[in-house]
Structure formats: structure tokens, C-alpha cells
Amino acid sequence: MNVFRLTGDLSHLAAIIILLLKIWKSRSCAGISGKSQILFAIVFTTRYLDLLTSFISIYNTSMKVIYIGCAYATVYLIYMKFRATYDGNHDSFRVEFLVVPVGGLAVLVNHDFSFLEILWTFSIYLESVAILPQLFMISKTGEAETITTHYLFCLGLYRALYLLNWIWRFYFESFFDMIAIVAGVVQTVLYCDFFYLYITKVLKGKKLSLPA
């Protein structure tokens, strides 16, 4: 555990809780892509199956359980409790174009051709692109609520901090995982355009809106 890893995890947790609270307090999931949230629920489920096979630490187990629980709670709020506010018409990204190629890649490029390892690899690849339906939705409507941009910033920051964590681990622990690193770089790059808008607009008190 190093400082980048810990702040990355906390940033990830903050993102998840910001989104849950935003939906709960406003009683609305307007502007939130349900498809991205389903993809994140699949990501956590397929990655954390190791909860059943190996114990690493109390921290590790509790964070995994919290992430999975929050992911399903978010999906429940969007598709059940507040489904009347769900903006399905604008959430039109075709997720099969992500899930099918990512599944194929996980079968082809992995560390070990076993069921759990392929699911772990699938979750790493899927996480790297799971935010695309949300970004697509924002580009389609041309705007995002400020609280939604805080959510996205924390989510992007988490993977950027993990990149620093991997550099740290490479130097001080001689450990690196090429699958996680390549997917993590892809994931972080997808947020760059958003980071720019967040810093130049949202942090200066303006609403995030895209030119028509």
C-alpha cells in the first residue's frame, strides 16, 4: 500500500458515494447513464469473485464488498426506484459494441487461461471503457450537472492515481502488471478531454456545457 494507491481507492469511493447521494437527494437520475452503471456493476462482480477464493486483508475485503454493494444500489435506484426520471432516450450507446470485443480480447490476451483469470481480465478491460456511455450521453445532451462532473472527476482521478501507484510499485517493489497498466492508460486517456473541461469551466464556477 502506498499513498497513490490509498488516495486512488478513496477517490474511487468518493465518486461512487457522490453519485449515490446525488441520485438519492435529488430523487432523480437525470443525466446519468444507466448503461455505464450496469457496466460498472459487471466490472466489480467479475473482478471480485476472488472474494470467494482468497483472503488478502480486511481493507481489501471490505472495500470490494462496499464497491459491489454501491454499484448494485446505484443500478437499483436508476432502473427501479427512480426509473421515471431515467433519461433512456439519451442513453443510447450500444454497449454490445464494448462488451463483445472486450470479452473476445479477455479470452485472447490474459495471464492464465482459467475461468476466474479470464473474468478478472475481462473486468479490467471492461472498466477501461465502461464510462463511454456516460460520456456519450453528455456529448449528446451537450451538458452535465455540476455534481455529475464532480463524480466524473473523482472517477477519472482514481485511475490516474493508480498509474502513479504502478510507477511506484515498479520502482520500489519490482512489480508490474502489463494488462492492468495498458488498460489503465486507456481508461485515463478517455478522461483527458473531460479533465480539461472540468478545470477550465467547472472549477471556475461555470456549468459544463458543450458548444452546439
Binding site: 494507491r5 481507492d9 474511487h12 476472488d50 482468497s54 488478502i56 486483508s57 481489501n60 472495500m63 470490494k64 464497491y67 495471464h111 492464465d112 478478472w120 493508480y162 501507484n165 517493489e173 512489480f175 502488471d177 492492468a180
Partner: peptide, 10 residues
Amino acid sequence: SPELLRHDEL
């Protein structure tokens, strides 16, 4: 093992 090191990360 490298496998456990990977599964330590979230």
C-alpha cells in the same frame, strides 16, 4: 505470488 499482488488491488 504475482497473482495475489494483482488481486490486492481494487
